[in-house]
């Protein structure tokens, strides 16, 4: 709410001391120097021009980042799980053993094993086939909404952090007001009003993510805007737009990529919850959240498989995305 509520604001709100005396070389290559410093220092060859050296340095740094990531078991495991579900989502009916909508009316709530590896649900539909094909909706809706939220939030955060002053004050209050509402709650209200469809779900979730992302980006921008290269760009008479999007933005891609991954995890969380509550992905989609909502009341009668298996699917997917986010945070954050 105020500065004190958010511990994350602490280190970022303190303005970095800005140096007013920066020589010409520093001005031109402020951006390049920073990028090299933050990743791995690569000595520029003697014959190279500054920008060519920068390009090579950037490429090397990117490769180095990737190498660091591949050494993290959480990154590798997380990606393997995500790839598994992406394959299921893309393959869909082609790789499912049965049609996910086919009712085997002689096999209502058939236990796992035999012809139905993971059993059948209350309508005699094959649980395994529904889990495989059910990956599709959430894997489209969640990442798209995360991208919408991160894009809007980045623009908002850049504007807030760069202009400060009244613009920041007003936008910050609005952001705070949005943050006081749990997304599932306000999403429920918005989706009742707009009517549920995959498009409205991803729009609503994306829009609701924007204020959260804006907070993170704003904090990053506040730290950047006092640095020499921003001062240099100002002195050169660059437009605010240019400074925000061409100078500051490239330097905060690390936190933004981390934020995007974290948001994808939360988007899966939110979309699955909204589907469970009946305002997200709609029947007859074999969506996991929907399946759990249709079947959870039967667990206690012993029919656990149509609920526990989709639950495991959701759990594995969100944990995988969080493992990736965690690894990215360790490697990319400064």
């Amino acid at each position: 709410m105020s500065e004190t509520t958010r511990p994350s604001d602490g280190p970022h709100s303190a303005a970095t001391p800005s140096s007013s005396t920066s020589d010409a070389a520093d001005m031109t290559h402020g951006l390049v120097d920073r990028e090299m410093n933050e990743m791995v220092t690569v000595p520029a060859g003697p014959g190279m021009t500054a920008s060519a050296a920068a390009l090579t340095a950037r490429k090397t740094a990117r490769r180095e980042t990737f190498r660091l990531l591949m050494r993290k078991p959480s990154f590798v495991i997380g990606n393997l799980i995500v790839i598994f579900w992406v394959v299921c989502a893309v393959g869909g009916k082609a790789i499912a053993p049965y049609d996910p909508q086919q009712n085997f009316s002689d096999f209502l709530h058939a236990p796992p094993g035999g012809d139905f590896l993971l059993g059948t649900d209350r309508l005699g539909r094959d649980v395994l086939s529904r889990i495989i094909t059910g990956a599709r909706d959430v894997l489209i809706v969640a990442p798209v909404s995360a991208v919408i939220g991160v894009t809007l939030g980045t623009v908002l955060g850049l504007v807030m952090g760069f202009y400060r002053g009244a613009v920041d004050d007003i936008l910050s209050r609005i952001v705070e007001a949005f943050l006081s509402l749990p997304i599932a709650v306000v999403g429920l209200l918005a989706l009742v009003v707009l009517g549920p469809s995959n498009t409205t779900v991803l729009t609503v979730v994306g829009l609701l993510f924007a204020p959260i992302v804006a907070r993170t980006v704003r904090a990053a921008v506040l730290a950047e805007r006092e640095l020499d290269y921003v001062q240099a760009a100002r002195l050169q008479g660059e437009s605010s737009f240019y400074i925000m999007f061409r100078e500051i933005l490239p330097n905060i891609t690390g936190p933004i990529i981390v934020e995007l991954t974290v948001r994808i995890g939360y988007a899966i969380f939110t979309v699955a919850t909204l589907s469970f509550l009946g305002v997200g992905v709609q029947p007859p989609s074999p969506d996991w959240g929907l399946a759990i909502s249709d079947e959870y009341s039967f667990i206690i009668s012993g029919y656990w498989w149509p609920v526990v298996y989709p639950s495991l699917a959701i759990a594995s997917l969100v944990i995988a995305v969080n493992l990736i986010a965690d690894a990215l945070q360790g490697v990319l954050s400064r």
């Binding site: 759990i292 969100v318 944990i319």
Partner: peptide, 10 residues
């Protein structure tokens, strides 16, 4: 990371 309703079913 896991939604509450999934934890609940477990």
């Amino acid at each position: 990371a896991i939604p509450e309703f999934v934890t609940s079913t477990f």
